[in-house]
């Protein structure tokens, strides 16, 4: 990708999203991929956008985030956005995707059910995980290409303006997306192979961007670095780095510097606490000074991590840490924050 040589693009974070229709959201475990992907789907649904949020890990993470029961294998409109936009959710699993695939391409629903009974799904998911991945990425690319007017339509408007995938974590994302080479070793010809080629042509195209969710911590940042290198080495396009759970700054820079250096003025602090009428101001001052110092050290580390992430050249987009439970209104706040930073279709 050229922007690696020419520095970050001038267009800001929005450039990492605009024009793409398949957004693959990965990140280290525990960084809040599902939350970030859902907020991104909401942001992309602004101004009447129709967005599909696709979950592929079988965790029902979106259902639990939205406080609903487990979702079936079915594109279900779950969220409406002011302006006429909507987010549909699909919890995809390989077994259902296989049955659908058989019916769609071969008209063989009955045989497909027989295959399921035979353990053919174990077959697809166990011995050749590339097949499982190609079914799931195949579902995503099918949704990207789908047009109004049924499966045969070739020129009507697209059914979805954007598809957001809550993808496997960074440790597995390269293999997951590179289904072509996974399947190529097994099926050199035949329908599965042509299916894989079709999927890959979407994933390799301008239509697809891989976004990385991280925290301001060293290990998630390192995985982001490694993941971006891996994805780009595969010839796929990376998009933004979504920095999740960013806390508000609670200290000014001078106080941070003093606290880090161990020079915090505990006497002045005690004085202030006394003025506020708090008991035992000296000992309380020592307690609070300890908290301030811990915060300052953490803050410095976060600044270092942020600088390192910025050096990657991908646009950084920040999501604030939610106070309390993550729910629909907290998701709206996150989506708004994304929009403010230029995230759009």
């Amino acid at each position: 990708m050229n922007e690696r040589e020419h520095g970050p693009r001038g267009g800001g974070p929005g450039e990492a999203f605009a024009g793409a229709r398949l957004h693959i959201v990965t990140g280290k475990g525990g960084t809040g991929k599902t939350t970030a992907a859902t907020a991104l789907a909401l942001a992309l649904a602004a101004d009447g956008g129709r967005v599909l949020l696709l979950e592929v890990e079988g965790r029902q993470g979106v259902a639990s985030l939205l406080g609903s029961g487990p979702l079936p294998y079915e594109e279900r409109r779950m969220l409406s956005v002011p302006g006429g936009g909507s987010v549909s959710v699909l919890a995809a699993d390989a077994e259902a995707a296989l049955l659908e695939y058989l019916e769609l391409f071969y008209g063989m629903r009955r045989a497909g059910q027989a295959l399921t009974k035979m353990g053919a799904v174990d077959f697809a998911t166990t011995i050749a995980p590339g097949l499982r991945d190609v079914l799931l990425t195949g579902k995503a690319t099918e949704a990207v290409r789908r047009r109004e007017g049924g499966p045969r339509a070739t020129d009507g408007p697209h059914h979805y303006d954007a598809v957001v995938m809550d993808a496997p974590p960074t440790g597995r994302i390269g293999r997951f997306l590179n289904v072509n080479s996974e399947v190529a070793g097994l099926a050199r010809t035949g329908p599965i192979r042509s299916h894989a080629d079709r999927v890959m042509s979407v994933i390799r195209s301008e239509l697809t961007r891989v976004h990385f969710v991280t925290l301001l911590e060293e290990m998630p940042a390192q995985e982001t670095r490694d993941g971006i290198a891996e994805i780009e080495a595969l010839g796929l396009r990376t998009g933004a780095v979504l920095v999740n759970m960013v806390g508000p700054p609670l200290l000014d820079e001078a106080d941070v510097a003093e606290a880090v250096a161990g020079d915090l003025d505990e006497v002045a602090l005690a004085d202030g606490l006394k003025s506020a009428g708090l008991a035992d101001p000296e000992r309380l001052s020592a307690d609070l000074a300890g908290e301030v110092r811990a915060y300052a050290l953490r803050h410095r580390l976060e600044e270092r991590v942020r600088t390192g992430l910025a050096d990657l050249g991908n646009p950084l987009v920040e999501l604030p840490r939610a106070e309390g439970r993550m729910d629909r209104s907290a998701l709206t706040v996150l989506a708004d924050r994304l929009a403010e930073q230029g995230v759009r279709r």
Partner: peptide, 17 residues
Amino acid sequence: VSLADSHPLAVAALRLH
């Protein structure tokens, strides 16, 4: 809040706490 602008370090420390 009661300290308003008078002791900025204490205010920051209390909010952080």
